Computed example of a mutant assay.
Amino acid sequence: MISSKEELNNYIKADREALDMKHPFLASLTFGEHARIRNYLTTLRYTEYYSQKSGLIGKILYGIHNLNLRRKSLKYGIYIAPNSIGKGLNLPHPGFIRVGFNVKIGTNCTILPMVLFGKAHPTDNMRIIIGDNCYFGVGSSVIGSNIKIGSNVTVAAGAVVTKDIPDNVIVAGIPAKIIKYKV
Rank of each mutant, 00 (worst) to 15 (best):
A156I: 08
L29S: 06
S4H: 06
N168S: 09
L44H: 02
R98Q: 13
P92K: 15
R71L: 12
F101K: 13
I143L: 07
K180M: 13
L91K: 12
S151E: 08
I2E: 07
V138L: 15
D124M: 04
S28C: 09
T154C: 07
N102T: 15
L41R: 02
F31C: 13
Y62N: 14
G88I: 03
P113N: 11
N168L: 01
N102Y: 11
N39T: 14
I2N: 07
I37N: 00
L74P: 04
L91M: 15
V153N: 01
L116I: 13
E6S: 13
F136G: 12
Q52M: 04
E48A: 05
I97W: 14
D20M: 07
G77H: 09
F117D: 02
Y50T: 02
S3T: 09
I174R: 04
N152T: 00
A157Q: 04
S28H: 05
I64M: 02
V169A: 12
T162L: 06
L61P: 02
V142I: 15
I80T: 05
K148Y: 07
G150R: 05
V161Y: 03
N152R: 08
K148H: 15
G118Y: 05
I105K: 10
I130K: 12
K75R: 09
R98Y: 14
K72A: 14
D132Y: 05
R70T: 11
T162F: 03
V155R: 06
I111Q: 03
H23M: 03
P122R: 04
G63P: 13
I128H: 00
T162I: 06
P122L: 15
G32D: 12
V103Y: 01
I147L: 08
I85Q: 01
Q52P: 00
N146A: 03
V142M: 00
G144N: 14
I179N: 09
S28Q: 08
F136N: 10
F25S: 09
E33G: 04
K180V: 06
M21K: 02
G106D: 07
F136W: 10
Y11Q: 05
L69K: 03
N39Q: 15
K177I: 09
P94Q: 11
L56K: 07
M21Q: 11
I179P: 07
I111R: 02
G150C: 06
N168F: 01
L56V: 13
C109S: 08
I128M: 01
L91F: 13
H93M: 15
I178R: 06
N133Y: 13
